[in-house]
Design a protein around this nucleic acid. Sequence first.
DNA 1: CTCCGTGTAGTCAAGTTTGACTAATCGAGG
DNA 2: CCTCGATTAGTCAAACTTGACTACACGGAG
Lengths: 216, 216
Amino acid sequence: MSAIRLLVLGAVRRHGRAHGYQVRNDLEYWGAHEWSNAKPGSIYHALKQMEKQGLLHAHEIAPSTAGGPPRTEYEMTAKGTEEYFRLLRGSLTAYDQKPDVLAAALGFIVDLERAEALELLRDRVRAIQDWRKAVTEYYTPEGGPGQLGHIGEIMNLWVHSADAGAEWTDGLIRRLEGGAYTFAGEGEPFSGVHAVLAEGERNPYATGERHPGDER
Amino acid sequence: MSAIRLLVLGAVRRHGRAHGYQVRNDLEYWGAHEWSNAKPGSIYHALKQMEKQGLLHAHEIAPSTAGGPPRTEYEMTAKGTEEYFRLLRGSLTAYDQKPDVLAAALGFIVDLERAEALELLRDRVRAIQDWRKAVTEYYTPEGGPGQLGHIGEIMNLWVHSADAGAEWTDGLIRRLEGGAYTFAGEGEPFSGVHAVLAEGERNPYATGERHPGDER
DNA sequence: CTCCGTGTAGTCAAGTTTGACTAATCGAGG
DNA sequence: CCTCGATTAGTCAAACTTGACTACACGGAG
């Protein structure tokens, strides 16, 4: 599963009520258009789909104050909130080599309680170790490694990635254990830069430059 | 772009002529079903699509010797070979955090000449460094970092991944410089385990176990 | 002989993603 | 006043992906 649903649900949730363009702007503000498939089409599609599935409730709204076609505002339903947390938890634990999903979850991690976040991250480390083991076993021929030739480099890549992922997760766990950041139920919620764009606020990060790493 | 086209083209190329089921088996043999979207539907779709685009030439064949519906065999065209190398080169250099694409390219890297492979990998390192720089710049607010709160962990993740990717690439470059493996134009081609399944050969790795890391 | 499981080969509908396109309004410049 | 460009908001067709399903043949159990 991709990161788009989590991102959209998270954006709507932070606003309480939001229309597609607002979500789109938030995601761009968070930099998500650089590292996830958060393109207009995907966002509007996700909104409509999730409305059909009862995760969001739609309000038809008169043409906006500032040009453009009439817009639709969405609110989360109870079912939507449930799904949001299901996705958030799943994205933190599952190691499926899709870093954009993890990045998205990271943006919302403080919506959980600290203890749960830590538990989930420890599960993640375990999942990474399982994957590492499975990979090395799969790519070990009877005659010992060395028969693999350059194919062994594929194994190498996965093992290296897994180790890097585990190391990073461990680092995060240590920071959280050390009391970093403010989690749910720990007083005033996060409100630094990058929280959310208020209606009409300009995105100071929207430079319009293309960043390297973009697909061409 | 996903890894499927490269994988399918590469599989067909190694056989000279192959039907869908054969490709499907090779990809499973290489372990690709574990780390890429190489599902039957995707494979057959890719074959048909690439035939429509003139990358492959299709031969309708009488019902197979061993049950099942009639099958179609595919051969690469000149255009297909061109596209294959275009994809291969692109997958080695582009850093778009899709490790399955890199893994696929790795499996075919010896189809290039050693000097070119090295050049491409050095380009890759440069691309990774560019991405790293772009990320740190994007996520550095005016008031200095620290204002970011937990959002800074997203940056952290990307930086950590980039560094790990660069490190791995450097390692591979050193191994190749050291003369590892046999590349195009260096005498007898690779023929170890994991080369390709001959018609009718059983896949000794097909255990049927589910591996962790699978999507549920 | 018949039924069932396994292997062979592929199809299909539903859902998702992409990239380009539409359409309306506002403000500045000529 | 008119036009151009930017901003706002969203649509659409084409391509791709997913997971479940079909259909046929062989071989062994009962």
